[in-house]
Amino acid sequence: MVAGLLLGGFYAAVSLGVSLIFGLLDIANIAQPAFVILGSYAAYVMNSSFGLDPILTGLLFTPVFYFLGAVVYRLYYGSFERRGDESLRGLVFFFGVLFIIEVSLSLKYGVDYRLVDAAYIGKSIDLGGVGIAFRLLVPCLVGLAMTLALHLFLSRTFYGRAVMAVSQDRLALRLMGADPVQIKTIAFGVGIAAASLAGALLITIAPVVPSTDRDYIGRMFAITVLGGMGSVAGTLVAAVILGVAESLMATFFGPSWSLAVSFGILLVVLAVRPAGLFGR
């Protein structure tokens, strides 16, 4: 149960990028999990070669990922959005990107599990009789911090409000004097930058292989849809629900069922209430 709550904080971190890009910008970036795994491998490489802390690496790499995201969005915009056939072919485009990242990683680093080493991994603290592993606690706290940061970015900064405007009210955006394409580039970049940190958290929690991204497609989209498409608070609540549901499932039915939980929830939510729990 506690593990589930902690997992939830981490899932929130992983899903923020999708929540921003898919929920608010309406861009079906199913390659997001691959970017997360890319973040994991960046953390792995920096950790094994220079002994750098994975989460620090994640933070250091955010500008690189931001830039990567901006480039991918520009390509997407130029090829699909401007022509107005983004839905079908854009989806296929991101599916291809996902595949390329995943296969590139397995070409370069093989399909063995990779993990990182940091002082706090393996330690735990005792809170009222419940042992809490730092391995889970740290990602959860960082995840919460990221959620808060994104919330502040969207509600307090000029660009953040512009992003909200892109998703809701184009007229307001024009009144603000902002260029939608530029705003979307920024938002997409921020979403991908979040993947850098999320990836670092992921490899702190558990070892990673290139194909780990597949497990997260369902989780991310389940959380985003359940959370009401782009609501930061909703994402957090949905992430915690999913985290708890998965650990309960793993405890009672065995770990092989836990993955089916997220996809099962996703299927049911999509079929019954596509607007999510906190839908507009």
């Binding site: 079906a28 839905s87 989806l91 389940a222 849809v225 993955l259 099962g264 999509l270």
Partner: peptide, 23 residues
């Protein structure tokens, strides 16, 4: 499912279906 789901949502649902069936 296409009654309620179009575009991206339909695609994601089919992906989810694949994982559930595999499990």
């Amino acid at each position: 499912l296409t009654l309620r789901l179009r575009g991206v949502f339909f695609s994601i649902a089919t992906l989810a279906l694949s994982i559930v069936l595999q499990t």
